[in-house]
């Protein structure tokens, strides 16, 4: 059987996704036996022209991490789509928008002004922000355009498979590497490489659950969590109940709450709504003595609602900031 031709690319991301692939260890060293990497700008010396030079649909699988923030990322995504028969959105940014997607709370100009003018670390008296084209000494310097919003990969191109995670767990990556042949062969492979049930289903703390309310919620620094008990029942906002499992429970094993990087569950249409709905139901103290205005106090621990419920998914949320 011929080797699977792979192209890797990245968009708006931190680089952790590329590292995560290299991080799986032995399996990467074995890769050359089964795959042929034709493009991977982060790890190997390829330039965009190398990608452009390939024939359309000549690559079996394109694996793209990162969201789409700039015109360059959009162009490259489309290029990958043209060259590859199958496209995999790799990592939470490509799948749902990821951390860069949180920028969608703000307008384009607000972001640029904050980053280049207002931020205390800047010295920018002339108040210059990035320009797509700037003229200097007769030269025209260009930069990719900073688009009005961050989009997920499948909001820009058609995506065949999704591999969530920030970054995907080694187990998920191994599953992906093992199924590359099947994907290239057009065989039926899971569309989303994650569990169909929520993290609680596989959480090692599940057995300790008592099905009780979280009478008080704590911000992470306010409580050293018990290492065995359900974090939510201890009052820590853990989104495991509304997030796909398959991640290997890495965060909860390290006594950290789930923040939702494996994405929303099947049968839901918004990534943050279900978590909000469930948390509002289980958080709170006795109702009989609380003055009405105090019933909301329990939610004080949720200082940043968007950042809590849409940490990795704002661009894929049903709610979108209106853009002029």
């Amino acid at each position: 059987m011929s080797r699977v031709k792979l192209a890797f690319n990245w968009g708006a991301s931190c680089g952790g996704c590329d590292v995560s692939i290299l991080d799986v260890g032995r399996a990467v060293l074995d890769l050359p036996q089964t795959v042929d990497v034709v493009y991977w700008p982060v790890a190997l010396d390829y330039k965009r022209k190398d990608l452009e030079a390939l024939d359309d649909k000549s690559v079996d699988i394109g694996i793209v991490n990162g969201a789409v923030r700039t015109s360059e990322q959009e162009e490259e995504a489309k290029l990958i789509r043209a060259k590859c028969r199958y496209v995999v959105a790799y990592g939470s940014c490509a799948c749902f928008g990821g951390i860069p997607g949180l920028a969608n709370q703000f307008g384009r100009n607000e972001l640029l002004e904050r980053a280049y003018i207002e931020a205390p670390s800047n010295t920018n008296e002339a108040a210059v922000t990035v320009q797509s084209v700037s003229e200097r000494d007769g030269f025209s310097l260009t930069l990719p355009e900073f688009l009005p919003e961050v989009r997920t990969l499948d909001q820009v191109i058609e995506v065949n498979h999704f591999v969530p995670g920030c970054p995907p767990s080694t187990a998920t990556i191994t599953e992906l590497l093992e199924t590359l042949g099947a994907i290239a062969g057009g065989k039926t492979v899971k569309r989303i490489l994650a569990a169909d049930k929520c993290l609680c289903y596989e959480c090692p703390r599940g057995k300790t659950k008592e099905a009780k309310k979280a009478e008080k919620l704590y911000r992470p620094h306010e409580l050293i969590a018990d290492g065995e008990r359900c974090l939510l029942e201890q009052g820590i906002v853990c989104l495991g109940f509304a997030t796909r499992g398959g991640c290997g429970s890495r965060c909860v094993a390290a006594n950290m709450p789930c923040r939702g990087c494996y994405g929303r569950l099947p049968d839901t249409s918004d990534p943050g709504a279900e978590a909000m709905s469930a948390l509002a139901a289980v958080a709170g103290d006795w109702e009989d003595y609380l003055p009405t205005q105090k019933i909301f106090d329990v939610l004080d621990a949720v200082r940043d609602a968007v950042g809590t419920f849409y940490t990795f998914s704002l661009p894929s949320a049903l709610l979108k900031r209106e853009r002029g």
């Binding site: 709370q105 139901a281 709610l319």
Partner: peptide, 26 residues
């Protein structure tokens, strides 16, 4: 509430959703 605290649950739910809608200018 006829079912314990359903009213409080939804009051909190709406409060959270409104916070998010506000953050998004909605």
């Amino acid at each position: 509430c006829h079912h314990g605290a359903g009213n409080y649950m939804t009051a909190r739910r709406v409060m959270l959703l409104n916070t998010i809608m506000r953050q998004l200018g909605l």
